[in-house]
Amino acid sequence: MANTPKENFWESIFQPDVIQYLYQLLQQQQQATQAMSQIAGQLQAVAGELAAVPTAQQAAQETGASSGRLAMPLPTLSLPVSPKTINEMILSVELSGHLFIDIGNLAFTCPAMQTTTASLPVFPNTVIVYGSPLRYVASYYSSGITLSLSVDGKQVVGVGGHPYLLTSSGQAELGQYFYSRQGIEFSIVNNTNTDTTISVFGEAIYIDREFFDLFFAPLMSYGYNVLKSLAAIVNGGHEIS
């Protein structure tokens, strides 16, 4: 007895491969539903955090409705701080008695065939932070005249510590945030038969030593240690001594 068209239809539907296909569709649908549930959960968490943020109206009420001002978030400070940031912070607030800035300008004669040394000592209980390179000019230039510069007893100018030849005006780059606890010493050797007068000038920031030791130096040390730790993480745990 032959099957009716209706029976043929159901037989064709319930073939094994069709059932397998429908089962896969059901699985994918369940996975999609689970993913959407997770997203919904995350959205609920975000909504809860947003609810804790005061609205502009609430903030105005907290700060005083009469002033009409809105509550501002506290400023954030990125760490590690840089010497530039600290210098700017120091210079932008009034620290009476803790520091002063001096545009130093000194000229001294360096007689022919003589060595002239000039010491610029730091005041007791003071540290100098340099705000600019030290520039120098002379009344007479020659390759027979050399200029050396020492900070705290360490020679700092020239490649490999060699002195500058005074063949033109120039500047000694100490590093803009170089600091000194003892002083600068200039040494000029004039091996010519002509006297020369040398002027040196630059910006020096004199900071109270206690303030420097308790504010500037710890922040610099902290910044350095943060970067050292970061370098150790990046290079696989090898920390420099």
Binding site: L106, M113, T115, T117, A118, V122
Partner: peptide
């Protein structure tokens, strides 16, 4: 043939020479 100039450690108010 050598000479040394020593600048003073004066107070902050009259620092300039």
């Amino acid at each position: 043939g050598g000479r040394k100039i020593i600048l003073p450690q004066v107070g902050m108010s009259n620092r300039s020479i």
